[in-house]
Amino acid sequence: MRRVRDGSRTGRARAAAAAAVGVVLLAALTTGCKATPTGPAAPPGAAASAPDDAKPSGSAGVPSPSATPPASPSARPSPRPRTLMSVGDRSRRVRELQARLRQIGHFDRSPTGYYGTATAASVRSFQGKRELPRTGRTDTVTWRRLLAMTRKPTAKELDPPAVKPVARPDARCMTGRVLCISKNSRTLSWMIDGRVVSAMDVRFGSQYTPTREGTFSVYWKSRHHVSTLYDTPMPYAMFFSGGQAVHYSSDFAARGYSGASHGCVNVRDEGKIASLFAQVKNGDKVVVYW
């Protein structure tokens, strides 16, 4: 009987041991299905961190060295000067520009109101002396500087009788309505009964195309005339001898006496000849003399 009991005890012990081994094997199979991270295990209680490429490049409140800082208002470029007047312009403002330049010795002729090469050269001279860009154009900076250095021109400065002194009138000019034109003084005087109403600078034809001398009369007026021979504008033309006329010349306004006409009497002040054109009538006398 004792042996039987011992055998049963042994059987029960072996059964218990087998059961324990089964529990261990079951636990091992269960844990083997769980994914294991490839990196080292984080310490207990440590918060999971984002991968490196998800982290901001700089710490909180501190910009990254590669970040571009915003442009400050003071670093913005100032606006470029705006052009107010340039070659080819005609206006009272151009006349004022010329009068102001003449006040300080940068323009050596009577204001014409036409912005030609002579005016551009005068503006460049002014700009160069004030260390401004020598463009020859009158921009906002140049104009403000000129205004600060000069005074408002008088009516006589804006519309002088003529740059050159008016010549003593020829005896033929002393009666009636006469365009009295002196080659010697290079002036035209508009006279009525011996009184000079207005005067202006003029230039004549070259030695190859001279302006005729003598007594004539205006036989045709053409406000917007264009030469059929030279295809050039002859505004405010007043014809007195064949194809020769008194008319405005933008070339004269721009270049002065460095040029010449093809026989006509050129006037460089457009405002003055416009006024003269309105007063002169067909039949009025024209006297051209030395």
Rank of each mutant, 00 (worst) to 15 (best):
R134G: 01
A148K: 03
P65V: 03
A121L: 15
S49V: 07
G128M: 06
Q127E: 14
R95V: 07
A35Y: 06
A99S: 13
D52K: 15
G61L: 04
A50W: 07
S241V: 12
R76T: 11
L147M: 01
D52V: 14
G194M: 11
L146D: 02
P111R: 09
G105D: 14
R124I: 03
R134K: 13
Y289L: 04
T135P: 00
R90N: 15
G128L: 08
G214I: 00
S59F: 14
P165H: 08
M85G: 00
P43T: 15
R92T: 13
P63E: 12
A19L: 12
F277A: 01
L146Q: 01
S258D: 13
S227K: 06
S258W: 06
K285L: 07
T68Y: 00
L158R: 09
M200P: 13
M191A: 05
M85P: 02
P81R: 04
K164P: 01
G22I: 14
L25A: 15
S241C: 08
K183V: 00
R76G: 07
R177T: 14
S59M: 11
A71Q: 12
E131R: 15
G242V: 02
S59T: 15
M191I: 02
E213R: 08
Y248N: 04
G105H: 10
S110F: 05
R76V: 11
R124L: 13
A274G: 07
E157G: 00
K55I: 09
V24S: 12
A148N: 10
Q103D: 04
H224C: 11
F216C: 06
P43N: 09
V218H: 04
A20K: 12
M191W: 01
P37M: 08
K221H: 12
D201E: 10
F240R: 03
F277P: 11
R145H: 14
C180R: 08
V202I: 06
L132D: 09
S72V: 04
A155W: 03
L147P: 00
H224D: 12
G11D: 02
V287L: 15
V178Q: 04
G61T: 08
S206N: 09
R12N: 09
A47V: 09
I192M: 08
S182T: 13
S110V: 08
A121D: 14
N184C: 09
T83S: 10
